[in-house]
Write a protein that binds this DNA or RNA. Structure first.
Lengths: 222, 222
DNA sequence: AATTCATTAAAACGTTTGTTTGAATCATAC
DNA sequence: GTATGATTCAAACAAACGTTTTAATGAATT
């Protein structure tokens, strides 16, 4: 056998992936050296290049490993909603929950590494590494397309462009809620030391409030 | 004279700052080398260490240069509101505009570099570089404290902790709207090619909708 | 015209970077 | 037991990193 996560071979591989995930989250891609990764994973320096080929391919695999599952779970939740609705439009709040709620539940999994990964993911949205961005776009394409279509159907009276904007805003609010260390946290001192289960309901209510907010008056069309 | 931005000396200094600002935004701190900065600024390699001391002090100065003005403008806007109100509570929407609208107006200034800087700032909120974070906390402290106090006064019926959460969410939505390159932009292809003046009214309405959204039911207090 | 001090310039400093090499080690199949 | 193929290991590679050094240049002061 050659590549698939076999019995023993998978050990080194996943030790590397786990170590890289945490370090990328803490120090960024450029701020994390191969030696940091391999020493944290307690493997030989050459192991990364042997198992993954290069640092960039390792980065790619760190994302692929979790993102595939996340977006599968999102699509499965959407499938359920659409099956229940039988062609009828779905409540926007349930669509939003299928997309963002699923991510939040992954982020609530601290021990399994889901939280670490969601922090990394949120952080990566603003890391303009061309290589990673292209990869994320491909991984997300199908999922985003289907959810947008569902929202268009759920909100037929709202212009599609507006829905796009609001989805973008929701993305931002969620990513920051998970990954951000903004001036607030810095000034007030992380106020989410308490259990992260507090985050989900609060964020969902905020997102829905924003989504439903009256549209801005057109203003001078300029 | 020694340090102040004199006649000729300021030229090299600000050329370095301008170059660094763009490069940090595009490639991050670790992804931007001294040679990239100095060659873009068309100055000698040693110039950064001569004028700023080190790379980290340069980073600090890139932020200080613009952040001081931004937060001064925010506080000035809040001063106006409070003077107009004469001790009476202020409408939350006006407080939100004084804080986020001011930032959005800076971000709308593309030619003067305001847009570049706001992208960099949003990106930095998720860059856990300890050095930069500490610096941002100090720069923001007074401003955030005064705006939170104003919001507490404007929304006396809402628990303070909830206001904190929502401020955090608003921070995230705005930063991403400016700096984020999430799956949406990646999939739909940047949809903000049009003038960035479209962003401000849409985001403000989203933020206010989220801020006013009914609070999440307490749920199982756990 | 000579002196002084801030600035720029070119070259080199020692580290650290990602990657590669070739031998050692291991488990499995014959 | 011997051979085979995958994996681990220590060591080295050139390239790039941030920083320092020393000399040249510039403009102002004496």
């Amino acid at each position: 056998m050659s590549e698939p996560a076999g019995k023993t071979t998978g050990d080194t591989r996943s030790r590397i992936l786990d170590a890289a995930e945490v370090l990328f989250m803490d120090h960024g891609f450029d701020g994390t050296s191969m030696r940091m990764i391999t020493s944290r994973a307690a493997v030989n320096l050459a192991a990364v290049n042997y198992h993954f080929g290069s640092k960039e391919l390792l980065i790619q695999e760190v994302f692929r490993r979790r993102l595939t599952d996340l977006n599968k779970a999102r699509l499965a939740a959407l499938d359920v909603l659409e099956a229940e609705a039988c062609e009828a439009p779905i409540k926007p709040s349930r669509i939003v929950d299928a997309f963002f709620g699923t991510a939040l539940r992954m982020a609530a999994d601290v021990e399994g590494g889901g939280h670490t990964f969601m922090c990394l993911l949120g952080r990566t949205y603003t890391e303009p590494n061309e290589f990673v961005r292209q990869f994320l776009a491909e991984e997300y394409a199908e999922c985003v397309e289907r959810f947008l279509a569902a929202l268009y159907r759920a909100l037929p009276e709202v212009e599609r462009k507006e829905i796009l904007w609001r989805f973008h805003f929701m993305m931002g609010a969620m990513s920051y809620a998970i990954a951000g260390t903004d001036a607030l946290q810095l000034v007030t001192g992380k106020f989410d030391d308490e259990d992260p289960s507090q985050l989900a309901p609060r964020l969902m209510s905020f997102l829905l409030g924003g989504l439903r907010s009256p549209l801005a008056e057109a203003g001078p069309p300029k």
